[in-house]
């Protein structure tokens, strides 16, 4: 799997509410994150497990000399843990000064949306999922949940 670098300094934020998202799959479900927080997308490499880490932290990998923690997003959302395969993907996300990777099954799409189509998270979802899901949207009959990446990190920092 090759590494795909994404442009950083596009002026998406200036177009009012229009923004671009990267959509990806976990099992049968689709999620997305804001493209502005994504630094790169790379293939899965075996992570070194961290002692006493929460179950959703796969461990750390070497990202060009930096030590990058990997979060199994499925486990983080309360789904069964992902079993990483050669086809799994790591989305490298930056929140403030911290870089970390999200382990997902596959990247599916790049979406351009406006905030209007974003609906509040339905009450059905578990509390855990609601913590990380900022909203859902319906696109071409698919339901895609927007993940708030900045919520993934503080929790797992507190645990660490």
């Amino acid at each position: 799997m090759t590494t795909l670098s994404l442009p950083q300094n596009d002026n998406h934020t200036e177009h009012g509410s229009a923004r671009e998202l990267i959509a990806f799959c976990i099992g049968e479900q689709e999620f997305c994150v804001d493209i502005m927080s994504v630094r790169e997308i790379r293939g899965w490499t075996q992570a070194t497990p961290l002692p006493h880490a929460p179950s959703y932290v796969n461990g750390v990998i070497n990202l060009r000399g930096a030590v990058l923690p990997i979060v199994d997003l499925a486990a983080r959302l309360g789904f069964p843990r992902t079993v990483p395969t050669a086809r799994s993907v790591i989305i490298v996300v930056r929140v403030e000064q911290q870089l970390f990777g999200l382990l997902v099954d596959a990247v599916s799409d790049i979406l351009t949306i406006t905030d209007e189509i974003l609906q509040p998270t339905p009450d059905l979802a578990s509390d855990l999922a609601k913590t990380f899901v900022r909203g859902v949207m319906a696109i071409e009959g698919r339901m895609i949940s927007l993940i708030a990446t900045d919520n993934v990190l503080p929790q797992f920092q507190a645990v660490a």
Partner: peptide, 25 residues
């Protein structure tokens, strides 16, 4: 390599390093 920069303190672990095979130890 610092673990704290991107993660946090891990009990029992001082830091990390990258071995010759590219893996983190």
């Amino acid at each position: 390599k610092s673990l704290e920069a991107n993660y946090g303190r891990v009990p029992g672990i001082a830091a990390a390093t990258i071995l010759g095979d590219g893996r983190v130890a």
